[in-house]
């Protein structure tokens, strides 16, 4: 009996204090008790709605219209824009370019970024300074990066061509960004250069928390440097590499400014990625509906890629 009585007393006391609080604080106190969770969630929920759900929904909605800038009402065409899209060679070409662009930049960023991180993980004099300097490309604004690289690539007075010609590697300067054969790799290189530090920083951070004991145990077990990298380092940084690959893929697939500012999608559409095609449709030919349709397709493509990634990540037991 006694515990029940005590509980009842507690409940009475609790009820009394709630009533007292309500008398003292009035409506606010009552609200605080009953709706606090909702109130606290409201700002982020609103932000999410306004900044994410609405534009996305509006974009999908727009893709069902033939809508011109001069005719903002537009005409409902249903899936017409998508039918046009999937029958259009431009779209398939850009999808291929985008896939290669994302694949090449992300692949190189990960391989080179891991290599640089491994180098910066070794002790050497001035390591902290070099670690700081490595961040430099990432901190530079894209427009400055593009201007610098356009100068470097320039066929008449670019340093790269000067060095190549002076050292006798090539006979004549190469018009890196205006030759359809070299333009793709020209923009890929800048994309890799600019975002490499992102990979370096994250991989380096992961390297620093790998227990040193594991390497020592492996040394005693007879593993050489290569075996230690393959059997320990690679397994330890694998998860981080997967996440970095996911983030970089989304980012590079959607990246607009580097390619647009360097080549504008040319020459001869050799670097025409999907974001540039969206821009061309929406703001070049003012076909907002078609532009939206491409953007929506990109969105669902990325969702598909992400689902594969997450399925892959979840398979890992730890």
């Amino acid at each position: 009996m006694a515990p029940n009585e005590a509980e009842a007393a507690l409940a009475r006391e609790g009820g009394a204090s709630w009533r007292a609080a309500r008398r003292a604080g009035g409506l606010l106190a009552a609200l605080r008790d009953q709706h606090l969770g909702v109130i606290l969630l409201l700002p982020s929920a609103l932000t999410f709605l306004v900044l994410l759900v609405f534009p996305l929904g509006y974009g999908i909605w727009t893709s069902f219209f033939q809508r011109h800038v001069l005719d903002p009402e537009g005409v409902w065409v249903g899936l017409g824009n998508y039918v046009w899209l999937f029958g259009n060679r431009e779209f398939w070409h850009s999808l291929t370019i985008s896939t290669f662009w994302a694949g090449a930049t992300v692949g190189l960023q990960i391989v080179l970024g891991t290599a640089v991180a491994l180098l910066l993980h070794q002790p050497f004099k001035g390591r902290s300074l070099v670690r700081g300097l490595v961040l430099f490309p990432y901190m530079m604004p894209v427009v400055s990066v593009v201007l610098v690289w356009m100068l470097l690539y320039n066929a008449l007075y670019g340093v790269i061509n000067y060095l190549l010609v002076a050292s006798g590697i090539v006979g004549a300067p190469i018009a890196w960004l205006s030759d359809p054969d070299s333009a793709f790799w020209g923009v890929v290189f800048v994309g890799v250069w600019k975002y490499l530090p992102f990979v370096v920083v994250i991989v380096l951070a992961r390297l620093q928390v790998i227990p040193q004991d594991l390497y020592e145990a492996a040394r005693i077990d007879g593993a050489g440097a290569v075996a230690r990298f393959l059997d320990i380092t690679l397994h330890q940084i694998k998860d981080v590499l997967l996440v970095v690959a996911l983030l970089r893929t989304i980012f590079m697939f959607n990246n607009f400014e580097i390619v647009f500012l360097l080549t504008g999608g040319g020459p001869l559409r050799a670097t025409m990625t999907l974001p540039i095609l969206v821009y061309e449709q929406a703001f070049g030919t003012y076909e907002l509906g078609r532009g939206s349709a491409i953007a929506v397709v990109m969105f669902f493509l990325l969702i598909a890629v992400m689902s594969v990634y997450f399925a892959f990540l979840r398979k890992e037991p730890d």
Partner: peptide
């Protein structure tokens, strides 16, 4: 000599088992 050439074995405080 390198550790692997000494024919020793070591047990670490943290065990240092290869987690994967």
């Amino acid at each position: 000599l390198e550790p692997r050439d000494r024919n020793i074995a070591m047990v670490f405080q943290s065990y240092a088992l290869y987690p994967h």
